[in-house]
Structures are given as structure tokens and as C-alpha cells.
Amino acid sequence: MTNTFFDAVKARRTYYALSNEQITTDERIQEIVNEAVKHVPSAFNSQSARVVVLIGAQHERLWDIVKGELKKIIPVEGFQATEDKINGAFRSGYGSVLYFEDQSVVESLQQRFPLYKDNFPIWSEQSSGMLQFTIWTALEIEGLGVSLQHYNPVIDDAVKTEWNIPTHWKMIAQMPFGKPVAEAAPKEFQALEQRVKIYK
């Protein structure tokens, strides 16, 4: 199978060694995020996704916050390894995309459509997953290395305070990106026969 879309899907990988060298413009990064947020589908066209992009010093501040919050809960003897990982794999990059879902939108849908009440939080996170994948793949096409992290809820309060994030935005994930300075690890695949069934 060969086409531009699947070439991009197959090329997308997780990179844990990044530098902060600029290899595309900030305007291009914003364009990618804007297009993805606008066009990625959501249940009932709820458009509940919210995104914050942090670049340069603001990005570094995020990962300093992560280290500070983790230092409160990780034993002293184990913290150095955590700090080294954050510095080398995340803080060393060029920027970060923070993903949120607006819970006021989700709750409004729950009230309007009570039959589907339990599903709306699930659908909200599914839509966020599609958004994350879209932005991740698009950034990789630009030559950026990317990974997806989940330091929430440990960092939620500190992040909301630092960047004046509305309280009804629920943090879903953090996506650091930058110039890759090492190859991604090899990827193994399970047999498709165990994962896909077709009936005709």
C-alpha cells in the first residue's frame, strides 16, 4: 500500500532524544495545530478539543514544572534518573503541545442527550486521541521528532496556574517535539492475523 497518507502513518515514530534547534517556523507549527483542531472529527461535532502550544522558554518552563511536581512524590534516591530523562527526552526539545478537553462541553452534551451520558467522556477522549495522532504525524512530516507523555494529573494544577488555563479544561496529554538527534527504537509488530478479522 503506497500513498502519501499511509507513508506518513508508517513513518510516525516516538523520539526520546531531541534538540531545540529550529527546523521549521513557529508559524508552520501553529498552522498544523490550527488545521488539526479545526478538522479532526468529534462526537456530535462537539469540538471539545483545546490545545496550548509552548515554544522556547515557555516549553522549558513546562518541563521544569514537571520536575518540580515529581520531586515532591519521588524518593530522593530515584529522582536523578527521572530528572535526566525529562531533561534529555523532553525539556531539550523545541516545544510542547498540551492537549485538553473542555468538560463544560462534555457536560452540556450529557445534559442534552442523557441517553448517551456515559459515552460522552469516552467519545471526548477518542476525539482527543485522533487529534494527537494527526498533529504528531504532521509534525513528523516537517522533520520533527515527537513523543506523547502523560504526567497528568500530577502537573494539572501547576500548569493551569502558570498559563491561566480554565478550570473546566481537563488535561489529556503532553507532546514534546524537537529536532531528533538519535534514531527511533526499532518497532515490532504483532501478526495481523491475530488482530484483524474479515468476514465476507
Rank of each mutant, 00 (worst) to 15 (best):
M1E: 09
M1D: 11
M1A: 12
T2R: 06
T2I: 04
T4F: 11
F6D: 07
A8R: 05
A8H: 08
V9L: 10
K10E: 13
R13K: 13
Y15G: 09
N20W: 00
N20A: 08
Q22N: 08
Q22S: 13
Q30E: 00
E35C: 00
A36S: 15
V37A: 08
K38M: 09
K38N: 15
V40H: 03
P41G: 07
P41H: 09
V53R: 01
V53T: 14
V53A: 05
V53K: 02
V53P: 01
G56D: 04
G56Q: 02
A57N: 09
H59E: 08
D64P: 14
I73S: 13
I73Y: 12
P75Q: 01
V76A: 14
E77N: 12
G78R: 06
F79L: 08
E83V: 05
D84A: 12
A89Q: 12
F90L: 03
R91S: 06
S92T: 08
Y94E: 10
Y99W: 14
Y99T: 07
D102C: 09
Q103F: 11
V105Q: 07
E107N: 14
S108D: 13
S108T: 14
S108P: 01
L109P: 14
Q110W: 01
Q111R: 11
L115E: 09
L115W: 08
Y116F: 02
Y116H: 00
K117C: 04
N119D: 11
N119Y: 15
P121T: 06
W123V: 13
S124V: 05
E125Q: 14
S127L: 04
S128I: 11
L131C: 04
T134W: 02
T134V: 03
T137H: 04
A138E: 05
E140A: 04
G143Y: 03
S147G: 07
N152H: 09
V154G: 00
V154A: 04
D156C: 04
D156Y: 02
A158M: 02
V159E: 14
V159L: 09
T161Q: 15
E162T: 05
E162A: 10
W163E: 10
I165A: 09
I165Q: 09
P166C: 01
P166G: 02
H168I: 03
M171K: 01
G178M: 02
V181A: 04
E183V: 11
A184I: 10
A184P: 15
A185T: 12
A185L: 12
P186T: 08
Q190K: 07
A191S: 13
A191R: 08
E193A: 10
E193Q: 10
Q194D: 15
V196L: 15
Y199M: 01
